[in-house]
Amino acid sequence: MAKLYFYYASMNAGKSTNLLQADFNYRERGMATMLWTAALDTRSEGMVRSRIGLEADSHRFTPGTDLWKAVTQQHDETPLACLLIDEAQFLTAKQVWQCARIADEAGIPVLCYGLRTDFRGDLFPGSAVLLGIADSLIEVKSVCHCGRKATMNLRVGEDGMAVKAGAQTEVGGNERYVALCRRHFSQALGDTK
């Protein structure tokens, strides 16, 4: 029985690297996969990319993408062994339910990788639904500068100071976000939560 998996972590924990390793494992055994990433992340240019240099071509989803239709059409042409989705926090609730349907009805395992929370500590909509309905929740570990587990994503400005307000989604890497433990995240925000 295929399952819906959610691999979640803070920024820079290796989620994309894990996704690419899983994809490699399937392909090495001659199995077809389908990779997706958020079109919103313009840094990716249609690729799933890891910070350590691994990358693979992928499809790009927008809020209007019908994953059920796209995946089942591909599955009819070439049977898929696995569906892998990077930046899953940007999925809509409807798309997460489509992923569940892909696992339940099409029998294709769906591995979603993404952030759990935004720079304010609030759940992303896609992550909230994944946390609620995924068959398996797997935390990918990251480390704060103090050595504790990093679970939070601090957005920083050009001055390196914490950003406390703004749009939930702002694409960026190490220049915009720092993975911190909850204690240092709260301290950086001045305990405004």
Rank of each mutant, 00 (worst) to 15 (best):
D191I: 01
R116T: 06
L83Y: 02
A88K: 06
E55L: 10
G114D: 09
A88V: 03
S58Y: 13
Q95T: 05
N153R: 07
T33Q: 01
R182I: 01
D104L: 04
Q89S: 04
G172A: 11
P109I: 08
A100N: 07
A2K: 12
G30S: 13
A22G: 03
R155C: 09
E170D: 06
G166V: 07
W97R: 15
G121W: 07
E105F: 09
A9T: 03
H75E: 03
L154H: 12
F119V: 00
R183Q: 06
A88T: 05
E55D: 08
A128V: 00
N174C: 00
D122L: 10
F185T: 01
A100G: 10
C82I: 00
L80I: 09
D104G: 03
K149A: 15
A162T: 14
V171H: 04
Y26R: 00
D122N: 14
R176A: 14
K3T: 04
L54H: 14
H145R: 06
I108Q: 10
R155E: 00
L115K: 03
A93F: 01
D135V: 01
Y113W: 09
M47H: 13
T192N: 05
T33H: 07
R49L: 09
E55K: 15
F61D: 03
L35D: 00
A106L: 10
G190V: 08
G126A: 02
F61N: 04
L115M: 06
A2I: 07
S58E: 09
D23N: 03
A70T: 13
Y26H: 08
K164H: 13
G172S: 14
K141V: 12
E77W: 08
S136E: 13
L154P: 09
G160W: 10
T33P: 01
A2R: 12
L84T: 03
L54F: 14
A167Q: 12
D118P: 07
K193G: 11
R183D: 04
I85A: 05
K15I: 06
G64N: 11
A128Q: 13
T169C: 09
E105L: 15
S16T: 14
C146T: 11
C112M: 03
G46Y: 05
F61H: 12
G147N: 08
S142G: 15
E175W: 04
L130Y: 02
W36Q: 02
E55M: 13
D191M: 07
E105C: 11
D66M: 01
I133T: 11
L83T: 04
G147P: 02
I108E: 13
C146N: 11
P79G: 03
F24M: 14
A179W: 07
N174F: 00
L54I: 09
A103Q: 05
T33N: 06
A167F: 01
C99D: 08
A150P: 05
L20E: 04
M1A: 15
E175H: 10
L115C: 06
R182K: 14
D66S: 08
S10N: 06
S44H: 02
L35T: 02
D57R: 08
V48G: 03
A88C: 10
A39D: 09
G14Y: 05
A188H: 13
G46P: 04
K94D: 14
L83H: 00
G121F: 10
P109N: 12
L111S: 06
D66Y: 01
S16R: 12
A38Q: 05
S10Q: 05
A81F: 02
R27I: 04
E170N: 09
G132M: 13
F185V: 02
A13P: 05
